[in-house]
Every structure is written in C-alpha cells, then in structure tokens.
Design a protein around this nucleic acid. Structure first.
Lengths: 193, 193, 193, 193
DNA sequence: GATGAATGAGATTTCATTCAT
DNA sequence: CATGAATGAAATCTCATTCAT
C-alpha cells in the first residue's frame, strides 16, 4: 500500500494521483486506505517520515563514525566514501526520494520542515569534519559554513538531477569519481594557478 | 492575466491553482481565460514558452557574442559575466522560473521537452567556448561534455536552490563570486596538490 | 453498550453518530455491535422500546392506582403528584428521552409508532380521571379529549423545553409548582372573571 | 433551489437529505448548489436566516404597534390577535419552521444561536405588554418573566405539536380559541376557586 | 469579445456492514 | 463468541470547461 502509493507519487506527483489509482495499484479498496491513514496527507507523511529520519541520521552517523575511526583518511577518500554511501542509499530509496523532492517544491510546510530538519542535523556533524580537514591543510581556506553550502549545492544538484530529473536508477562509479574530482579541484586548471 | 496566473502557479503550483482563483486574481471572468487559452494546460504553455525561448537563446547569444568580441577574456571573467547575466535574467523572471522548475518535476512531457530544448541549444554554443579555454590552457583537461555537465549540475543546483528552494528574489555579488571561485578551484587546497 | 450509544445519540443525534464512535465509547469492537443488534436501526430500537413501554405503562398504572386508592385527592394534588412523578422518571431517563424526542422529529415511522402507542394507552386511563374530577366540579367544563389535549400540549412543551431544549438534568419543585398553578388557573386574573 | 431543499429538509431532516436529492428535486446539478452556497451548512443557513429574522422581528413589531394603537384592548383580545397572527405566519412558512425545529434539536450551535436571538428580542417587547395588562388588573399576579415563560412553553408546545409533530398545514379558529381560553383560565374550574 | 451561471466528471472522505480469524 | 480489517456504496465538495446572453 505504501509502496504502491510511493511509486505513483514518484512518477505522477502527489497532487496528480487519486486515491482510486492508489487503491487499484495496491489491490485494496479506497476505504482501506482511509481506514489506515485517515487522509491522503497523512499517507504522504507515512511515506516520507521514515525516509527523512534515515536520510539525515544515517548520514551523520556514518560520517561521525568514519572520521573518528580513521584518522589518516584524506579529504578525497572521505568525499568518495560519503558520496558513494549516499548514492547507494538514495538509489535504494529512489522512489521516496523522488516523492520528497517533488513535494518539497509544491508544499511549503513540507519544505520548511525539511529545511529545519536539515539545519538541525547536518551542521553539527559536518562542521567537525570540515574543520578537521582544514586543520590538516587539505581544504581551501573558507569558512566551514561556506564549504558546506558549496558542497550541498553541488551534491543536491548532483543527486536531484540524476535521480529525479533524469529518472535514473543508480549512479556509476565513474560519475562518483567525477564528482569527487570536481569538488576537490573545480574545473579550472590547477597548474595554471 | 498571464502575470496573475504565473504568480499563483509559482507559489501554489499549477495543480493546486484553480481557474477561479486565476480569474479572481486577474480581474477577469473564468470564461475569458478559456476564450483566450482554450485549456488550463495551454495557459501554462503560454507562460512557459516565451521564457524557455529567452532562457536558452539569450544565453547562447550572449555567450557567442562575448567570446568572439573579446579574445583576451579569462575563464574566470567569462564565468563571472555568464553567471551574473543569468542571475539577473532569472531574478527578473523568478516567478516563471519557479513555475518551470516545479512543473518540470510533475510533468513528464514538459520535462522531456525542456531537456530536448536544452540539448539542442546549449552544447553547440558552449562546446566552442570550452574548447577555446582549453586551448588557452585555462581549463582542466576534461572532455567538453564533462565540463558542461559539471558546470550545469552545479549552476542548476545554485539557481534552483536560491530562487525556488529558498524563495529568494535575487542573488548577491558575493554569492556569485563564491560560485565563480568554486567552479574555478573546487574546495580542495590548490597549494597542496 | 446501550448506555454508550444512548449518550452519544442524545448529544449528537443518531444520524451524526457513527458505529465506530459507539464501539469506542462502549469499549467493544464494531463487529460486536452488529453481532448483537444486526443493524444500527435495531440498536436504536433496542434503546427506545423499553423506555417507551415504561413511559406510558408506568404512567397509566400509577394514575389508575392513585385515583382508586385515594378518593379525596383534589385535582391540584393529582396534578402535582403526576407531574412530579413523570419529572422524576424523565430526569432519570433523560438521555433516552432526548434520543426519543430528537429521533421522532427525523423519523416518520418512529413518530407514527409513538403517536399510535400514546393514543392507545393514554386516553383509556386518563379519560376516567378527567371525568372523575369533572364529576366533583373541580374541572373546567370541557370535553375530556380537549382537557387531555391542552394538558398534553403544555406538559409536552414543559418537559421537552427543559430536558431537551435546555439540556437540563432535572426539574425543581418550584417549577413543578408553577406548572401546577398554570394548569389550574392559566395566566388570567381569577378574581376578575 | 432553496424551496426544494426546504421541503426535503422539512420532511426528512437535514442530515438525511443528500445534495444529490436536493439537486434532483430542484432540477439543477449538484455543482450548482455548491457554487451558490459553498457548503451544505451554508445552504441550511440561507434557508433559516431570513425566516428567523421575520419570525422575531415581525412578532415584536406587531405587538408593540398593537399595544400602543389600541389602549382598550383586553388581554383576551390581545392573545387572540397575537396567536392568530403567529399561526398565520407559521402556516405560511411551515416548511421552514419544520426545518428550524428539527435542526435546533440536532445542532447545538444553531440552538444556542436561536436561544440568544430570542432572548435578545422577545423580553424587551413583551415585558412592556405584560406589565401593561398587570397594571389594568387583567393578569395573574406573577413576575413578568414567569408569565412569558409559561406562555412561551405552552405556545411552543402548541405550534410545534401542530406544525411539526402532527405535520399540519394550518390551525383552525377553534383551536386558537381553545388556546386563548386555556391561557386565560387554565383547566381548573373558575367558579370553584 | 467578455461574462458568469451551470455543468458533470471525478476527488476525497465517511460509514454501516461483513467475514475470516 | 468477539474481533477488527476490509469493503463498497454513497456523501460532500472541487473544478475545468461550456454556452446563452
């Protein structure tokens, strides 16, 4: 039932999917849907909430664990691990990710909720890492906030364009490598600087 | 009428905006809307088509003109000009841009149309530029396609996050400068390479 | 179960009370309700039937007993006893009374059933009393039917306004006294006649 | 449309009448009903509001006019005129009256609104009359409030039982005469007092 | 050419009732 | 014998679209 709804929302959008369609796809009656979730709105939340929890909590958990367990990790290795890890998670949950991205565009409340959630979870965990790499001289001399902002903007574009815009099912190692290299050195010629 | 519809679509989404709302906001009758545009769908197209035309054609036109008129332009200067120019254009047309982005998510046909449109217009004009800068040794040694892809992903994320996700009305010079620096050199430490 | 349903019907009305609400309030499952009563309609009847039986049968029984056991009873004393007795009964059963009154308004069949029931039980018992008091010269010279009609109209208004319209839980002795005096002498000035 | 809805609400009750039934009876589509009245609730209000206004305002206006224009009017004549006037008004508007009475039972808000409305309009106009008749020695020596209460209870029962409970279309002069006599002298024997 | 009342198809939601466990 | 998940029919309401004026 959640699965059927997720797929439909992912491909058509929440607003363009009727409860009749969901019932048909899930092989239950419309009544059953509303018995379980009360309203179409709460059905959407039932889909998004567990994903949001995992998305941020797993992300920060992995990052913290990694940064403490392996002190010789270079920035490049860290980025590679991090991006590969999130790419795998999003590929597995690509339908829910599509729903989340599409609905964040349409739904102000949801957008604000996600923004608040992200603001509360991401900086505390990642500022630490950024400063660690800055201390080792591996990172450009920019405020931690700026670094996170730049990386988030690029990685947001990266994942959304692949999974949502291009409707991809996964991301290849080559693409990840490209992303890592871009984050590390931009597109300017290093030797020329 | 187009203006009223654009603002409503931008803030609530096409699917959540009724023709009655549009008529009210535009100060005309519902009948008039359908006399002019036939269907709600075609009203959306009437909003998006001129914008799409300008978005890509102006972009490529400026780029070509610039690259031929000023042969001493550095990559950094080019990026600064290019981003500032598009930022200004999108700020002026931010409502339509919001509609476009939101509806591309929901509407497969529209998304495919935009992708086709972009694929037809962008590479011909920009490959030239990329190769020109590569010839001058100012750019990383990557295939032109890869360079465009990286820049498009980042700049897509940059503009969408600002104008759509954060609902901003414009973009500051500082942000543009940050974007230029990031595109030029990534977040890695140049000296350390 | 009947009690929970009665309270809900009394405060919200039968049509606005769902079987789910009843099940919740009664602490049983919806299935159990339908196992016992078959339909929601028959649940309503199960509430109303015993009350209707008592309402009329007790009323006439008491009246008959009283009128034969105490031949010196004045009309005023009779009215006082009668009203106090019914007031007590209705106060005890006010929830069911509310259900009955509200549903008689909505349900033609129920209304007709109650009318028939009343017509069959009231006149036989009360005509006797009326004629007894007329014989003693204590009562206005009106047909027994008219007297019953007038008293029923006033007492119906009296009980319905208190218990249903004003949602009262009981009726004070002062109000009963007022009702007795009114029935006895109206609002005109006796001395002036 | 209001007429069709009124008849249906009057005979079946608001809660048991579907918008489909109303549309059919009114010869319009369901959409039209909701275009005009927004919700079923507001359709009910559109029926009741004008009636409530007339019911109380006409009542008090007539009473005041009468009591000042004719100083020789006896209490009995006043009651006869008053009851006949309201009987005529309610007979003409019996369908709406049925709706009002039935819905006041089911709907707490409506009941409270009507109670407040009545409390604001009736006493100011009628206390005057009561005291005028008391001054002339034509009325029982009771507080004005008590008199109004007794009369309202009886006349409420009188009109509701006839128009709602018995589904009558009008009230005969004989019944009015009976009501007047009862209000004037109760059912006790005047001579015996 | 503009209007706005009317429409009817379809959306969400509610609920009495059934039935496998 | 009680349960509660599932149902499907029906209710309220929304809305793009049409059409007579």
């Amino acid at each position: 039932m959640l699965d059927a709804a997720t797929r439909l929302f992912a491909s058509q959008g929440y607003a363009n999917t009727s409860s009749a369609e969901i019932a048909l796809a899930a092989g239950v009656s419309e009544g059953t849907i509303f018995k379980h979730y009360g309203t179409k709105d709460r059905l959407l939340l039932a889909i998004l909430q567990p994903f949001l929890g995992e998305l941020f909590q797993q992300m920060t958990k992995e990052v913290v664990r990694e940064s403490f367990s392996n002190r010789t990790l270079t920035l490049e290795q860290f980025l590679r691990n991090f991006i590969a890890n999130r790419a795998r998670f999003l590929a597995e949950n690509r339908h829910v990710f599509r729903v989340l991205v599409k609905e964040m565009m349409y739904n102000d409340e949801l957008r604000d909720a996600v923004k608040a959630y992200a603001a509360r979870h991401i900086p505390p965990a990642l500022n630490l890492i950024v400063n660690q790499f800055k201390g080792k001289g591996e990172m450009a001399d920019l405020p931690a906030e700026t670094v996170l902002n730049l990386a988030a903007t690029y990685l947001g574009g990266f994942f959304v364009s692949r999974f949502v815009f291009m409707d991809r099912d996964d991301i290849s190692d080559e693409e990840i490598e490209e992303a890592v290299r871009f984050l590390m050195g931009g597109i300017g010629n290093r030797g020329a600087s």
